[in-house]
Computed example of a mutant assay.
Amino acid sequence: MQTVITATKRETGSHSILTQLRKDGKLPSVLYGFNVEETTPIYFDYKAMAREVQRNGVNHIFKIQLGDKTYNAIIGEIQRDALKGKVKHFDLHSINMKEELEVDVPVSLIGDSVGVREGGVITQPNTDLKIRVKPSDIPDSIEIDVSSLGVGDTLSLADVRDQIPFDTLNDDDYTLATVTPPTPPAEDADLEAASMTADDVEATGEKLDPNKPGRTD
């Protein structure tokens, strides 16, 4: 059963009002969108809202009670304290449950990459995908299998778009994962430098001074 979260309309115009709300354990927000006549400043009980987000995730559809009206809303922009990382404000977008909307959904990489087994390092340049979907079908995450990625391989959206059961809006070259070669240990690099000969240096166009090894030109 979906939990109804009670919101209260708040005053605006003074930074001290927001500061006091946060001291009192409240979370400032704004509500806008479907069936909302104008953007409305509101606040919640911080702990109550945090519990719902932890239980259902940020892509959850929250049922918001404001006065005598109830709204279905999703979380929009989130603002955090720069030092502590604590959420200090967020937007709530009221939605029409019958219409599709665009949302960013986390990407979850699954599978044991061939390149990683060979010592490579897998990185995830982009952690979200933008999709168009009905509110009731918003997934918690989208799984992308990286099992076949070898060292030096890159996986872009074009490679897996037809495997994703949603209308995905990012460009084809949107990078989801890449496997980079392992970094050689520092001692190996030192040994390589130590084994370099005069012939190796001349082949690169450098010259050696017999009394002072290194480049002189």
Rank of each mutant, 00 (worst) to 15 (best):
T180I: 14
D45G: 13
P184C: 05
P181R: 04
G67D: 10
G33A: 08
Q79P: 04
Q79M: 09
M1S: 15
Q65S: 12
Q2N: 12
E52T: 07
A186V: 10
L191A: 14
V107C: 01
Y174H: 08
L208D: 00
L155A: 03
A73I: 10
I75V: 14
T123K: 10
Q2V: 15
N211P: 01
F62Q: 02
V201W: 15
V160K: 00
I164T: 11
P106F: 03
H89K: 06
D173G: 04
D68K: 15
E187Y: 00
M1I: 02
L18C: 09
Q163E: 13
P139A: 07
L66D: 09
H93G: 01
R55N: 14
N35I: 02
V58H: 12
V133P: 05
D45Y: 01
V201G: 01
L155I: 08
V105P: 00
R22V: 13
L31R: 03
D137P: 01
D173P: 02
D209T: 08
V116Q: 11
A177R: 14
L66F: 03
E202N: 14
V151I: 15
T180Q: 09
P213G: 12
G119N: 12
D112N: 11
T178P: 01
P185M: 05
V116T: 11
V201L: 15
S148H: 13
L157I: 07
H60D: 08
V53H: 05
V151A: 00
G67F: 11
